[in-house]
Write a protein that binds this DNA or RNA. Structure first.
Lengths: 66, 66
DNA sequence: CGACAATGTCAAGTAAGCTTTACAATCCGC
DNA sequence: GCGGATTGTAAAGCTTACTTGACATTGTCG
């Protein structure tokens, strides 16, 4: 699962810690998501979508075979 | 997190086992999702959206406070 | 009623998502 | 080059998302 979190975050001029605060997760979680270490839970995906005012499908793209 | 899985599944005339097969998860997982015992992973949410040809936001609705 | 499909549920196990703490590496402005 | 902010990473631990296997309950239809 690919995602555009880093790009969206940087477009807002936020640090990972800033984003973490707004999402109510740890900074390490934001870092792990951006680096693709794992996928967010569905509720967290919704929070991201809400924050960036984008549909989930526009932030996350299932990789082929998924 | 509320979801419309049961309604969508029944509209297709599928049993929980049928849907489980198509999603590549166990029947118990489909049952648990329909009964709201937990939320699906993001990849599984994408598979559901693909199957029913609907955006994720139309299948899942974050409850107030989420 | 009896059989069989569909659904609900429990227990025990594994894997994934997330936390805290802590420290190393990088980047930048002074 | 130093200091502070940002990012990367690791370990240990907890919770949630799944699994298989088994069994109880609830249809429904001859």
């Amino acid at each position: 699962m690919k995602n555009a979190i880093r790009e969206l975050r940087q477009a807002k001029g936020w640090s990972q810690a800033d984003l973490a605060l707004r999402l109510d997760v740890s900074r390490q979680t934001v870092n792990a998501l951006e680096r693709g270490r794992y996928d967010p839970s569905l509720p967290l995906a919704f929070r991201l979508a809400g924050l960036f005012a984008l549909p989930i499908e526009q932030i996350f793209q299932p990789e082929r075979g998924d």
